[in-house]
Amino acid sequence: MMTDARPIVTMRGICKRFGGVAALTDVDLDAYSGEVLAVVGDNGAGKSTLIKILTGVYQPTSGTMEMDGRPFEMNSHSDAIARGIDAVYQTLALADHLDAAANVFLGNELTRRIAGVTLLDNQRMRSEAERVLFERIGVRLPDMNAATESLSGGQRQAIAIARAVYHTDLRVLVMDEPTAALGPQETERTLNLIATLKAQGLAIILISHSLDDVFAISDRVLVMRRGRRAGVVNTAESTRQDVLGLIVGGNDAW
């Protein structure tokens, strides 16, 4: 499955302490281009802390991160975006009274200058949003003028993803529980969408509680338990029992 032998991003020996509490201890992670890495684990196992370090929201207490073999540090989420790492949150972070184009470009609007005054270029944002939604994600909205509150869960998620993939230098996309709020049909569509993005060469990191989704779409599974890496398995070579065993800690062979 790995199209590229070298990972885009590696994390080695990541530790994170909050006061006296060790949230993460000695965690390693590799993200490869064109691969879906699922991160699973019980509540409080350290999934979201790990992801927040990867997306620059938290800084690790110790440990190193490398991109293309070169070490780097990040101080904020915008540092991560500048390096091509972005996340789609479970809440989607959409302003639901605005239309799709306004949400795709929220905080990063396209403008043009008319007589020295900078104005929003709504027309170009609309056509660009329509293009990104269709070409990268394969979604065509019935009405680009509609406020996103009137769209379905899947369509709203497509808009949140379009916001991330509009940056052409995006290389690592973190998806936090993308199917948690969706019905079966929409879940199916979202999984197809993840496959599409993977085929475009992105490294996808999928956080999920649903082992169905994990086994349907991922290439490897990283299991977290009590702030440590309980194991990494190739999805094709393992069963749900293996992964469940790692999550609850019964199978300590790994």
Binding site: T91, A95, L98
Partner: peptide, 16 residues
């Protein structure tokens, strides 16, 4: 644009 976004979803506005 940001006035609408802030009123619509303050957390999202902050996050973006």
């Amino acid at each position: 644009r940001y006035s609408i976004a802030i009123g619509s979803n303050p957390e999202a506005a902050e996050m973006t």
